[in-house]
Design a protein around this nucleic acid. Structure first.
Lengths: 239, 239
DNA sequence: CGGGCGTTGGATCGCCGCTCCAAACACGCT
DNA sequence: AGCGTGTTTGGAGCGGCGATCCAACGCCCG
């Protein structure tokens, strides 16, 4: 309560250190990482920055813009870091690329949600481009390359979106990953083994389910499919 | 303004035909199909049913419960209808199963979002079970079957979630599918061809992009991958 | 016919994103 | 130095959301 300009109804002291879009985005990322997508409210943002709505909206168009910027911020680092180093086996490089994005969306689930909301952000250009080149190195024929890349991206972003949804669900209910999986496994184990033999059998394996491993299995299936198809295409074009 | 019980501040006449959870869910589906996820508000629901909040919450726990029920309502019909008829080729049956769910989430994008939010609803049990059996028919070995089924489900639900996200985006901006794709294609065509040769080349194909076709390509890649892997497993277990 | 209980309608609450405006400041010009 | 102009900042307020809560209503059973 230092000196006020006039009466008691003076406004809060104006901040001296400059606000900036970058600072706002960084704070948004902190909030998102801390409490998930629901935690990012304009109110919370103004509190943390000890400022007002006007200041925030001076640098940011709306909440969507903020989320997009935050996503770009995270993904840019991840993808550029994982982009294939020369000399590695294309298959390994593809796996590394995919798992890099998986890990990123696993550490920051809100990224997964935002990516599926608006997939073709600048940060994903490098991702798609790298996949395209690696498929070229795998001798995937021209005609099939875009489709193959699209399939992989669909799969990776699809899993990311689901991870995001699960994380949101866990956050809303306050349960951690462990109990979440156990609950699911229990529910599955209770289905009628006569009517659903496969599901019932799968329930046991679900208990020790590992999202990351399952994801990598999927990547390998798609990679196997892609090379199988290009082999067939060169060997027997009529198929 | 018919007769009121007493003074002018009487309340609206009480409905005579019974409300029911079923009626509420059906109305919710109508709203969702008409205007997407954002259109489903409690207010809109009470207006259409010409009732109040209390009546709705008497039958429905909260909005999540309502969305879940609506999803179940739609998916139940679709999956049970598409569940494999005996005698068809397992590959064809799998394709039909997958595309059935795709078409459903394409016609009702909000279903895609809700499915990825809570994947293991009862309605999807049949889906998963059918996939498991068909993979068995395809001679996918025991140890890999659950993983393979998981991968396919991940893929299908992942694409569904992305379709939902795109539909929401289109709805928010009021653009239709056509212009949406054209805009994306244009943006891609503007990237630097030196730095992003693959993306630049892909931009041309993007103009005539067909989500459904791309989805089916992915399913075929998956199928090719599955049989390639099981062939390798039987022929060369060390790989 | 009267009291109890399953339904129904809607006022109300707290929170959200967002708009809008005035106060506070930085800085070039005279 | 004094002034004016444009940018940056803080916060009151608006409309809309999901959800709660309670009073009014009718039906049915004793």
């Amino acid at each position: 309560m230092a000196k006020r300009t006039s009466e008691g109804t003076g406004r809060a002291p104006r901040r001296t250190d400059g606000l900036s879009r970058e600072l706002i985005v960084r704070t948004a990322v902190e909030i998102l990482d801390g409490g998930g997508e629901r935690a990012l409210t304009l109110r919370e943002l103004t509190v943390r920055l000890s400022t007002g709505y006007g200041a925030v909206y001076h640098y940011v168009a709306d909440k969507g813009d903020l989320l997009a910027a935050a996503t770009e911020d995270v993904v840019a680092g991840v993808v550029s870091g994982a982009v294939a180093e020369a000399g590695t086996d294309p298959r390994t490089a593809l796996r590394r690329l995919a798992v890099g994005l998986f890990d990123a969306t696993d550490a920051h689930p809100w990224v997964g949600a935002e990516l599926s909301r608006q997939p073709w952000r600048p940060a994903l250009l490098d991702f798609f481009e790298s996949i395209g080149r690696l498929l070229d190195a795998l001798d995937v024929p021209d005609g099939a390359r875009v489709d193959a890349a699209g399939t992989l991206v669909n799969y990776v972003l699809g899993v990311a979106a689901q991870n995001a949804a699960h994380a949101r669900l866990r956050a809303d209910r306050g349960t951690d990953r462990e109990t979440f999986l156990t609950e699911a496994s229990d529910r599955w184990a209770q289905v009628d083994p006569g009517r659903y033999p496969f599901v019932h059998a799968a329930a046991r394996q679900l208990g020790e389910h590992d999202d990351r491993r399952q994801f990598l299995v999927g990547v390998d299936v798609f990679l196997a499919g892609i090379s199988a198809q290009s082999r067939n295409a060169t060997a027997d074009p009529s198929a």
